[in-house]
Write a protein that binds this DNA or RNA. Structure first.
Lengths: 339, 339
DNA sequence: ATTAGCACTCAACAAGAGAGAGTGCTAACA
DNA sequence: TGTTAGCACTCTCTCTTGTTGAGTGCTAAT
């Protein structure tokens, strides 16, 4: 059914179409790839491929373009990921393993890197904070009557919040309160720390009621607030260079999609890991994503998985994107392990 | 030269043009404002206004549109700021004075609010951290061999950094080190803390050399890094609804401008305060901003001034924008004072 | 000083005429 | 039987042309 020659022709058409964004005709296929066939033969094959659903015609007398099913077949059965070039890999390496002080800058740079080398917008979805491990809580006095609570996770992420405290309380007291909190909570996963336990704490430290109440309040608040995945999109502008987004309505839709965090958060974590997941056009559940493709994968870290990926038009260089994503995933995971 | 009637006509044209984005003709001016004049008379006046440089014609036989000078004249001599409506003011009030736990969310919400009610993208430029007052430094031990430095400013902004420490050192020691740092640095402005003083510190605490060296290193690093203004842009998408940005090239330029932080940082702080500053089209120094207008003002806070503003097409509702900016500036300043 | 009238200009839109690219089919060919 | 040349046909794209309508500037009348 799908003999070698058909494959070759399909590949030709895909490569050509991805590059030019124009329907490709039988003549072009022969020329570009120096086939020892006449256009007429290729036409017959193309008719077959169309019947199989791998190609389609925008109108009777244009060339063919690959259908989404065509891309899917190519991706599944023929594609080979294109790994990063030597210099690209080097840059990535330097970028991440060099100066990894702040987690937020790492994310920023990684996203930047991805969109730079692929020319597609990248997205990174960080897992919710409350699934990480708790490491440390500290209450620090500030000006009279005020204190800061710091909550530190294993990854070095920090959230903090201001609370009111009685002016009479001493730094010593705050320290001992912190200590008790820490005994219970140290190295627990954030989402395991349930309200019942917090209640228990409240009993243990009955004496310093005021401070403790405030702390617990703040803590609950922090845990709630932080239970959100964070979405970082980089290089959104790249998408505007793709000819499919030359019309205003689409651009608006596209940019609206990118601003809508909730949409990304719902991205199913299909990929248990390892594999790079590819969603082509209508394969995306979310309607607003159905005019583009996603290439993404999960990465282990933070005790949970985050997601990292690229988006592009359906006509995207899946091989390059998949290669880049894979490389970045590996290095990020390695980095997180070392930490 | 600029009699009452001319003003009235100029205003008509501006209002009309701002609303429709179409050149407005003599007929329209008469109709819309029920003037007791014939189109012909208005035409004569318009010819005068054009000669004065306040109007221009896209081509011989279209209506007139206000020139940038025309807008400038209007803004300077005729415009009245339009204050927020009662419900708008209420929302703003609730938004800011309600839940002001985290400074970053305040900024986010303020920007959001501005762009929501005006339909223009808003920008907020936060002053560099190192111009705020220093409040507190704390070194906290983490896992063996690691510690966190926290640096807290008067505004509650926090920066932190991980450092390596000898495993042998005790929490006690860290605390005493923190204490010495605090004695020197407490309530100083960040930019006053010079390297010479840090050197002095190093001498005082000669014993715990290793930790102190690391701390100082990190501190220097933090002070350097934090010396940046931060730019937050909100509601960028709104701009795409303006008909002047219906063409792709402009959109790209526009979005590129918004991504380019450095550009905003260079925005001269012309406004000593109080006044709302308006830059119309080519009045902007930066070339990439010359196809749009800015309405902004400084706000005192953080011991320095930040900037807050709106951007729009030259054909923008300056009256509304100026009113909104003023209102927001006032309430933000009040908020910062209370803190 | 204002206005009516009129010829003139120019962008925007629609219709029509090629041009060009690509197809599908048929018949010839190896 | 698979491949190829030839050819009529289809459809988009582009360029041209004509038409319409809004708006102007000028002149002469009020």
């Amino acid at each position: 059914m799908m003999d070698e020659r058909k494959k070759q022709i399909l590949e030709s058409i895909i490569k050509d179409y991805v590059e030019t964004a124009e329907p490709v005709g039988s003549r072009a296929v022969v020329k570009k790839h120096a086939l020892k066939l006449s256009p007429a033969t290729v036409r017959n094959e193309m008719a077959d491929l169309e019947e199989m659903g791998f190609l389609e015609q925008p109108h009777t007398s244009a060339g063919r373009i690959p259908s989404e099913r065509g891309f899917r077949y190519y991706v599944d059965c023929m594609m080979e990921k294109e790994s990063l070039t030597e210099p690209e890999a080097q840059i990535l390496h330097d970028l991440l393993l060099e100066n990894m002080q702040e987690w937020s800058t790492v994310v920023e740079r990684t996203g930047h890197f991805l969109s730079q080398i692929t020319k597609y917008p990248s997205f990174i979805i960080l897992p919710p904070f409350n699934l990480s491990e708790f490491r440390y809580l500290q209450i620090l006095p500030m000006e009279p009557g005020k204190a800061f609570i710091f909550l530190v996770s294993d990854m070095g992420t920090i959230i903090h919040r201001k609370i009111d405290i009685p002016e009479t309380i001493k730094e010593e007291d705050l320290r001992s309160i912190s200590k008790v909190f820490n005994q219970i909570m140290r190295n627990r996963r954030m989402d395991e720390i349930r309200k019942s336990e917090l209640q228990e704490l409240r009993d243990t430290l009955r004496k310093k009621r005021r401070v403790i109440d405030r702390t617990l309040e703040a803590l609950e608040h922090m845990l709630e607030e932080s239970g959100e995945e964070k979405v970082v999109i980089s290089g959104a502008l790249n998408m505007l260079n793709e000819p499919e987004f030359k019309d205003l309505e689409r651009i608006k839709r596209l940019l609206a999609v990118m601003e809508q965090d909730s949409l990304w958060k719902g991205l199913v974590p299909d990929s248990i890991s390892e594999a790079v997941d590819i969603r082509i056009g209508k394969e995306n559940r979310e309607e607003s994503l159905q005019e583009m493709s996603l290439v993404f994968t999960g990465f282990k870290g933070f005790g949970d998985v985050g997601k990292i990926g690229l988006m592009g038009p359906v006509r995207m260089e899946y091989w390059k994107a998949a290669g880049a994503i894979e490389a970045v995933r590996n290095i990020v995971e390695e980095m997180l392990k070392r930490l």
